[in-house]
């Protein structure tokens, strides 16, 4: 079978051989079971077609114990094989290697980007990489003129090494799923929880990462990339200084923050419509930035007239994010 997806090869990780065996074993057994139904069906429909059968030749068979046992027992045996291989492949994915023999990387999925945080290197520097996918450029007819790209933002890992991903999402975000088709693996990333998955890449190359759990507007663009490097190249990069961390294109403008934190579900900003809370259109001319940032982090402190405390949850944002968000509310940028 030809290989169409970037990096979708049969030997990209240590999982692939077992997974492909389980899949194709299942497919071929299933094809046999399928044919055991469909071939007799076509044969009978042709052999006993109405114009060839006289009424007195019609059979009366309604039971055949041996046959019935056969077609119950053989599928049971088949599905027990499927169960066994489904289970062993699961164990392979879900049995984490010892952390001492692995690189443990923290992954954070949030609307709509992936962020990676490495353990500190010898110089004490922590690599933090992540970013949004640069969407494809399209012309006025919607035709793609320039393909989308992850730029240099990627999960950089060494080949033939156990990598454990400790994954989580911010508590006010939604569920995502970290899916690497080339390694046949995915696991949901749940807000407020830590889930894990691991892999051991066998081939140097670049592999696509997709979000597989529907998460809203830019779900279709929540990509990332895994770059598998030779071990020494990886070591050189990993031990490098802060400047060497690929910066990615980690865009986090105010509009994105507004969308990611779900502000829009209660506050309109483009119109005067009152949803659950007051409209924020032109809010910058009514309140100063201190009031606005308090309204985000401690909304019950000073509730405007006509609205009630206890409705809006308090949001925890980093100081930079908060400043960006407040600036967006004030200026629309």
């Amino acid at each position: 079978m030809s290989n169409t997806l970037e990096g979708f090869s049969s030997s990209a990780s240590t999982f692939n051989a077992d997974m492909d065996f389980a899949f194709w074993m299942h497919i071929w057994v299933s094809v046999a079971l399928f044919l055991s139904v469909v071939v007799p069906m076509f044969y009978f429909a042709w052999k006993y077609r109405a114009d060839k059968v006289k009424n007195e030749e019609i059979g009366t068979l309604t039971h055949h114990t041996a046959l019935e046992i056969t077609w119950t027992v053989i599928p049971i045996i088949a599905v027990m094989f499927f169960f066994y291989y489904g289970n062993t492949t699961m164990k392979m994915f879900r049995t984490m290697p010892a952390e001492s023999q692995s690189i443990v990387i923290d992954v954070e999925g949030s609307k709509w980007k992936w962020k990676y945080e490495y353990p500190a290197n010898k110089a004490g520097h922590v690599h933090k990489i992540g970013g949004v996918y640069k969407k494809p450029t399209i012309d006025e007819n919607g035709k793609v003129v320039e393909a989308g790209s992850m730029g240099i933002s990627a999960l950089y890992v060494p080949v033939n090494t156990n990598i454990i991903l400790k994954m989580t999402a911010p508590v006010n975000d939604v569920i995502h799923s970290y899916y690497v088709p080339a390694f046949r693996m995915k696991e949901d990333v749940v807000p407020g929880r830590t889930t894990k998955q691991w892999f051991n890449a066998s081939k140097v190359g670049e592999y696509d990462v997709e979000c597989a759990e529907y998460c809203g507007t830019d779900h279709s663009y929540m990509y990332s990339k895994i770059v598998v490097m030779e071990k020494d190249a990886y070591e050189k990069w990993f031990e490098g200084a802060a400047e060497d961390t690929p910066k990615g294109n980690f865009a986090k403008d105010g509009k994105a923050l507004y969308a990611q934190n779900g502000c829009a579900s209660c506050h309109s900003i483009d119109s005067d419509a009152t949803l659950v809370g007051p409209s924020l259109k032109g809010i910058g001319s009514k309140y100063d930035s201190q009031y606005l940032s308090d309204a985000v982090t401690n909304p019950d402190k000073d509730v405007p007239e006509g609205f009630y405390p206890g409705i809006m949850p308090a949001f925890k944002l980093s100081p930079e994010d908060l400043a960006t968000l407040v600036k967006y509310m004030e200026t629309g940028k």
């Binding site: 899949f23 299933s30 499927f82 289970n87 492949t89 995915k186 597989a212």
Partner: peptide
Amino acid sequence: IITFAIGGITGITITMIGLDIHLQDT
């Protein structure tokens, strides 16, 4: 019988836990 058999059999694929880890939500 043909189409549902295909639908049923491919359901068995994703009942196999390991394979579903790959094929879930695709």
